[in-house]
Write a protein that binds this DNA or RNA. Sequence first.
DNA 1: CTTTTGGGTTAGATTCGTCTAATTTGGTGT
DNA 2: ACACCAAATTAGACGAATCTAACCCAAAAG
Lengths: 230, 230
Amino acid sequence: MLSAKMEDYLKAIYRLERDGDPPIAPSTIAEMLDVTAPTVTSMVEKLADRGLVEREKYKGVRTTPEGETVALEIIRHHRLLETFLTEQLGYDWAEVHEEAEVLEHHISEEFERRVAAVLDEPEFDPHGDPIPSDSLDPIDDESATALSEHDEGGRLEVARVRDRDPDELTYLSDAGITPGTVLTVEEVAPIGMVTVQLESGSSVSLPDHIADAIQVRAPDTQGEDGVSQA
Amino acid sequence: MLSAKMEDYLKAIYRLERDGDPPIAPSTIAEMLDVTAPTVTSMVEKLADRGLVEREKYKGVRTTPEGETVALEIIRHHRLLETFLTEQLGYDWAEVHEEAEVLEHHISEEFERRVAAVLDEPEFDPHGDPIPSDSLDPIDDESATALSEHDEGGRLEVARVRDRDPDELTYLSDAGITPGTVLTVEEVAPIGMVTVQLESGSSVSLPDHIADAIQVRAPDTQGEDGVSQA
DNA sequence: CTTTTGGGTTAGATTCGTCTAATTTGGTGT
DNA sequence: ACACCAAATTAGACGAATCTAACCCAAAAG
């Protein structure tokens, strides 16, 4: 049995592999999990002993296929829980992350199955992140681009919001920006700010770090049904 | 912050106080939690340091009011979760105990509130156990009597089933016996067995240890509405 | 080709919850 | 009263996850 801590390390390593390239340096993991470097070294040794990561001393680690499956399982738990909390318990998307972060380590497979069934096997969580399938196949971390990379004039649909700060998320949803929102880039100010116009006509200005976190794609041309997100 | 383990000890001590009388002997706690006596001694020291139990060396422990509140909080979590799992996720009553036993330590107060709201502030869990109120007032552990104490002929309503064995619970629900079921004692055999007749007409025989676990009371004379359990 | 130096690892300590083995306590039985 | 015994506590150890301090690579800078 894996401890919750081991699961956290595996999840962190998996996430880091998805952005930067493997092998992942211990210092990077340490920063993400807010622990010291020696702690990472010893944990990584343990994960390597269990065959969940491959370790190159003084270089870093990469997940093995088995480790990746474990990471996907935890991510599936996390995103199913986030979806469940919003859809069934009335949580706001700003609140779900913390709760899911804890519960993801403690639900049974039975719970996972039943939640997925009640939600009708959802494919995306409230932030637009893809939920790994029951078979835990590696997810294709998709081709959406950051809002900050777009010039004025483009009509875009919000695909994903990669931000977990509750205040920022609350600000965005209050402003009317969530996955599925269609908007147009109105102005790209040279001072680290982007202004977008929503379909309602209202304008919203966002600092760069938030525009970086908002991933967009060409708008859904079909009729809006709220599910055709793939 | 209390660890999940400390919560388990507190819950166990609280339960034991409800049956036998305080102070509770370490050996009793050890048996309930399946740990050794020295482990109990050291844990009990810690709980006493935190002011959650009072300790009389070589005698045993009793919960303080503060410890009792913590125990009630955990029991509230547990029973709300059991209710939620059956009502909202379609679990069978035989399956909920184990899942709730883990999750009770990991849900937030926010989660507790929302679950209680979705379930409409339930007062009893699927086994008929009273759910402590939000204010965590000590629960009045009620006056129902064991089915095994009744003689032939009495018409009774099942109030509570104090059994957590999944096989036994499945057997009972398959046989049509759950809280709210009205039955009549048909025969008390001198070989450690009780036979009851349900309103459907079917007879069910039960060994003494199960008849001990089934708590009954005079049937609800009002119209059946499934809630008037108090 | 050497030196510097940032990051990684090793060493050793700490806390938590647990164990086994040894010892102490307090009530029982004679 | 005294010895005995069951139960509790103390002593000492261990694995997990963490830390700080000390040391060591290995890659970049001269």
